[in-house]
């Protein structure tokens, strides 16, 4: 079937065609570069920004904020998740609040975080952590509760202690869920860092976007966006890598279920 052969070369060719169309439109179509910059100018901005070290310098800041937030989110999310899943009365008391908090846009906490921690790097880290916290928490709880009773029965038949059941069965069983949460958290922490920078910062890719925006340099903005994408991707890929290593026994993709 020539369809499958087409499938291999069509994506890159398709994108090439799209990019060329974009380029011609931008140059010839009379659209201001403010609205739709040509891919060439985006690439140019990207290259310049990388070469003079500006991108890397600011990316470093955003990366530190994201990574720190990620680590915090994982630690807090797993710990609290374990507590809620294991301590029955905690779960019953907090359940409605968790459901409500899931629906609340956590970015709204940004001004609050600034009140608490000012405009320094701390507030960005905290905001990133807050955004990453919820997916990890929810998934940890779901994972710990998903343990099928059969395996728990095996442990109970051996008169295992509650801690033994948690450590040897419930926790490993929850790991695929925890990683799913970590994958989501990886993108959310970048979002948190950038939003925090939007509200006020001296360094970071978000700050850079605001600067470029002031100069109406849309090409620059797109270039920075790509930089941000790379950052998020690196974080995501690292989590995936750890997942592949630690969860060799579980399928990598869980089938999506409504």
């Amino acid at each position: 079937m020539n369809l499958s052969r087409a499938e291999t070369w069509l994506p890159p060719v398709g994108v090439l065609v799209l990019v060329l169309l974009w380029e011609t439109l931008a140059r010839v179509g009379g659209i201001s570069p403010f609205v739709l910059p040509a891919p060439s100018s985006v690439a140019h901005s990207f290259w310049v920004g990388l070469r003079n070290g500006v991108y890397l310098q600011h990316a470093m800041w955003t990366a530190i904020e994201s990574l720190s937030g990620f680590v915090l989110a994982m630690v807090a999310g797993i710990t609290l998740g374990a507590l809620v899943a294991e301590v029955r009365f905690l779960e019953r008391a907090l359940y409605p609040f968790l459901v409500a908090l899931q629906a609340m846009p956590k970015v709204a906490l940004a001004p609050l975080v600034i009140i608490w921690l000012g405009y320094g790097i701390g507030s960005k880290i905290l905001l990133a952590a807050l955004l990453g916290f919820f997916p990890v928490l929810i998934n940890t709880i779901a994972g710990l509760k998903s343990c099928d009773s059969g395996k728990v029965d095996v442990m109970r038949a051996l008169a295992a202690s509650r801690w033994q059941v948690f450590r040897m069965v419930k926790l490993p069983n929850a790991m695929p869920f925890v990683f799913a949460g970590a994958n989501v958290a990886a993108s959310f922490v970048v979002l948190g860092a950038v939003t925090g920078e939007f509200l006020g910062a001296k360094q970071g890719l978000g700050t850079l976007i605001l600067l470029a925006n002031n100069e109406l340099d849309t090409a620059q903005i797109f270039a920075i966006l790509i930089m941000l994408g790379l950052l998020g991707f690196v974080l995501f890929a690292s989590v995936r890598f750890a997942q592949r290593r630690l969860l060799s026994w579980a399928p990598l993709e869980a089938s999506p279920q409504p």
Binding site: E7, P11, G14, T195, I209, I221, I224, L225, I226, G232
Partner: peptide
Amino acid sequence: LLERTVYGYIVAIQTLPKIALAPLFVA
């Protein structure tokens, strides 16, 4: 055909924090 061509790029776009475009939209 369309799906195979486009889907990979949709996934790639999803890694971009689109919220970073908020200032641009305001501009």
